[in-house]
Design a protein around this nucleic acid. Structure first.
Length: 811
DNA sequence: AGCACGCCGACT
DNA sequence: GTCGGCGTGCTC
């Protein structure tokens, strides 16, 4: 039996399966998709079985093959579908196959190979007497090399000699980081008759023991955790221990799932009646679910139109059909509110995967999925890899969100992976947004997705009234405050009426850089070509790319002036201004500083919900998904800071942001107002946002994209090169650029090589090539060839190259 | 990627 | 003569 295995060496040279013999004792355990340990050259590595057959397939005689050393799990963590999907991703996103596989598995399964030192039999107390390292080794038998290096740095160079003389040996071990949570459970060993007997003979003082026995008399077959015994029956551990000693009960360790929601009670909520519009959009979705064949929908519904109810109903129909559902949400909106809604509706059938979980908790949720103990997964981007076997529905909420794009290898887009998975499984793909991505809407208008519209809010609640304030006029009217007169007035009004407000600070593209007011000198990173950002908490200036940090200088390093300040409006500054203008105002501020602690995000929101604050003040993180009945005003400070970024999606992102924030106001009985403060009120993204007119924005923006040659008219591939030496990186970029230029279609545009917008990061110079194409059917094939040619040249160099297919970040 | 092997310069 | 620098090549 021969296993074809990809190993954990994510470089193109080793990006292919290697053949291994399967020893007889492992053959019952090994399967396609198994995680294994194999010898690879002089080391030992983790690998994944991608095929099993009777013969070798990769050019080596069978008798020269090495043996698979270990199979790591009793059930393979990769299903056949995931394996196929990872192979597709590797081609689509030009990443090593094993990297795609790793992206699908919880972090604890990514085993790292470690070198260990082992004591041989020759080692004795006499030899070890004057070496701390050998003494330690004699005691423990084995030590990881990395630890030895730290603990005994001065003996480190003696190791090769000891190995040579046979005192110690080295060995590789692959260890994953799996930890399973254990809990003690108590069960009764006595028959009911025996219990009665014991109860009768029990001392009058043995109160706790009596309670335990009475409990077991009522539930003879059950077992109870030690916690339950303590918390609910007032029986402490020592009483149970002595009962164990008498042989009445047994205490055993049972593996339990970490459940972050264990202490919460979820009340089932009644389904609201559907509006006519909801019924209309649901009809074709449900029909497709019933047919169990591939279909895709774009649900374009304004904020407050009741999209979530449509999703939940679709999921319910999928479960009724005996199939499973994946629900994707943007990282930022995986709020407790959202989770609650799912737990209320689907109870224990839901697994939740979000970034706040510890690695262990994440692994436990993942195991519930692979063991078929849940039917629904709610999660951010990577939840698209949930190891279900029979996916019937994939929902992508806020489909336009950029967090669905992974910004490191594999640089996949969850929407694209979802589309593949839906087609593969004959499943329904349902994408929803109030402001769909241009690419998605364009495909929907061309019939690739069925377009479903929900133009009205539930209950015919009006869209909020949107007011645009031209901040230039405010300045002319001598108002230098960050609040316009209108916003000021409305805040005062809401305070009087005791209604709540959301104030949103647009921080996109608004960095807090440090500049000297006297000579214009800005603080820059010495390793990267970008300015340092100011951090108030510890009074430092820090580089976002490499972490280089200096203390905020008191004097300008150039001209010695004292007038060196940080620029940019922070939430703290807005909070201070609010306090000054409206004495006694209660502000709940949400930003990185106030939400860094685990659970603090949730805490702040629930405080606001309970009315302990008048204003919820924050950045991006308060823009989405929040639904508070008493909020009747949304204020947007500096709406257009995100408009002037060197990003072809700047207008789109601004429109989305304004629409989303505007959607926070007046969602319930009370009507809402939105105030947008801007210096460019004439910009089409702002005009259309005030009128809630997505189609008009779409038309205008499509004209721009056509004019400038950007998606959806052109598709992009960004190839970035980096190296310490400018001439080397330029040569590398040209090797690849020339290869492509000779082969691309005449309609394809090749830009570069040019220096990247951020030309240096971590002391490496960066150059890039941008490929813009419309009719290039074999782009991935072409890029694969180009990569091979580049690798051939790169053998002598060490130029790093990354390929980003359909990039979001162009820096 | 890691690691071994191998071929040249500066030391005991 | 050997120790160790890092270029080159391979991993079933």
């Amino acid at each position: 039996m021969i296993a074809h295995i990809i190993v954990d060496v994510p470089v193109s040279r080793t990006n292919r399966p290697f053949d291994y013999r399967v020893p007889a004792w492992l053959s019952p355990l090994i399967q396609v998709g198994s995680r294994v340990v194999v010898p690879f050259g002089p080391r030992k590595l983790q690998g994944y079985v991608v095929g099993i057959s009777e013969n070798t397939e990769h050019g080596v005689d069978e008798d020269r093959l090495k043996d698979v050393e270990q199979v790591m799990d009793d059930t393979p963590p990769l299903t056949a579908e995931l394996l196929k999907m990872s192979e597709w991703m590797s081609g689509q996103y030009l990443c090593p196959w094993v990297t795609a596989v790793q992206a699908m598995l919880p972090a604890v399964l990514k085993g790292k190979a470690q070198k260990w030192l082992t004591a041989s039999d020759q080692l004795d107390e006499r030899i070890c007497a004057n070496s701390g390292l050998l003494w330690e080794l004699l005691r423990k038998r084995q030590l990881p090399l990395a630890e030895v290096e730290k603990q005994f740095p001065d003996e480190y160079m003696l190791i090769p000699g000891w190995i040579h003389s046979g005192l110690i040996t080295t060995e590789y071990q692959v260890k994953d980081r799996i930890t399973k949570k254990q809990q003690s459970f108590v069960k009764c060993l006595l028959s009911p008759e025996q219990m009665m007997e014991v109860l009768g003979s029990l001392s009058a003082r043995a109160d706790q023991m009596r309670r335990v026995l009475e409990l077991f008399l009522q539930h003879p077959a059950d077992s109870f955790s030690i916690q339950t015994m303590r918390d609910e029956f007032g029986v402490n551990r020592s009483a149970l221990k002595s009962m164990e000693a008498k042989g009445w009960v047994a205490i055993e360790q049972v593996e339990v799932y970490r459940d972050p929601y264990a202490n919460r009670r979820f009340v089932e909520r009644k389904k609201p009646a559907f509006t006519l519009r909801q019924q209309e959009v649901l009809a074709p979705i449900i029909r497709s679910i019933q047919e169990s064949s591939y279909a895709s929908f774009l649900l374009h519904g304004v904020t407050g139109s009741g999209k979530t109810e449509v999703y939940l109903e679709a999921i319910e129909h999928t479960l009724a059909k005996g199939r499973e559902a994946i629900f994707l949400v943007p990282e930022i909106s995986l709020t407790p509110q959202m989770v609650e809604r799912f737990k209320e509706r689907f109870g224990a059938d839901v697994a939740v995967l979000h970034s706040a979980l510890s690695q262990g908790e994440r692994y436990d949720e993942w195991r519930k999925i692979i063991r078929k103990q849940v039917k629904v997964v709610v999660g951010a981007r990577s939840a698209i890899f949930a190891p279900f076997q029979n996916v019937g529905l994939i929902v992508i909420d806020e489909e336009h969100e950029s967090s669905y794009k992974q910004e490191e290898t594999p640089r996949y887009h969850a929407r694209e992976v979802a589309l593949w998975r839906a087609k593969e499984n004959g499943a329904v793909l349902l994408m929803g947004s109030a402001t769909p991505a241009l690419e998605t809407y364009a495909l929907a208008t061309r019939g690739r997705y069925t377009l479903l519209e929900m133009p009205d809010r539930v209950g015919h609640r009006p869209m909020p009234q949107v007011h645009v304030v031209d901040m230039r006029e405010e300045l002319h009217a001598e108002n230098r405050s960050m609040f316009s007169r209108l916003l000021h007035e409305m805040i005062a009004d809401r305070l009087k009426k005791q209604e709540q407000m959301v104030i949103f600070l647009n921080r996109r593209g608004f960095s807090t850089f440090v500049m000297c007011r006297s000579c214009g000198y800005t603080l820059n990173c010495i390793h990267c070509d970008i300015s340092l950002t100011y951090h108030k908490s510890n009074h430092t200036a820090r580089c976002h790319y490499c972490g280089y940090t200096i203390a905020q200088p008191a004097h300008c390093p150039e001209c010695q002036s004292e007038h060196i300040r940080f620029f940019g409006t922070g939430t703290q500054k807005v909070e201070a201004e609010l306090a000054k203008l409206f004495p006694g105002i209660r502000v709940i501020r949400m930003d990185v500083d106030t939400t860094s602690r685990k659970g603090s995000h949730e805490e702040l929101l629930s405080k606001f919900r309970q009315g302990q604050g008048d204003v919820l003040l924050g950045t991006q993180m308060i823009a989405k998904g929040l639904d508070f009945p008493r909020v009747t005003l949304a204020g947007i400070i500096a709406a257009d800071t995100s408009l002037h970024l060197p990003d072809f999606r700047a207008a789109e992102k601004t429109f989305q942001l304004l629409t989303q924030v505007g959607g926070r106001a007046g969602r319930h009985e009370l009507e809402g107002d939105v105030v947008i403060q801007t210096y460019t009120p004439e910009h089409y993204s702002i005009i259309h946002a005030t009128r809630h007119d997505y189609p008009a924005f779409y038309q205008d923006e499509m004209l721009q994209r056509r004019r400038t040659g950007y998606p959806p008219y052109y598709r992009l591939v960004l190839i970035t090169f980096s190296h310490e030496d400018v001439p080397v990186v330029i040569r590398g970029a040209h090797v690849l650029g020339d290869f492509l230029r000779q082969r691309v279609a005449s309609t394809t545009i090749l830009l570069g090589p040019v220096a990247s917008p951020i030309a240096r990061v971590k002391d490496r110079f960066r150059f890039q090539i941008m490929l813009k194409y419309r009719d290039e059917p074999n782009v991935t094939e072409l890029l694969t060839q180009a990569t091979a040619a580049f690798e051939e040249w790169n053998k002598q160099q060490k130029v790093l190259m990354t390929i980003d297919v359909d990039p979001y970040v162009l820096l």
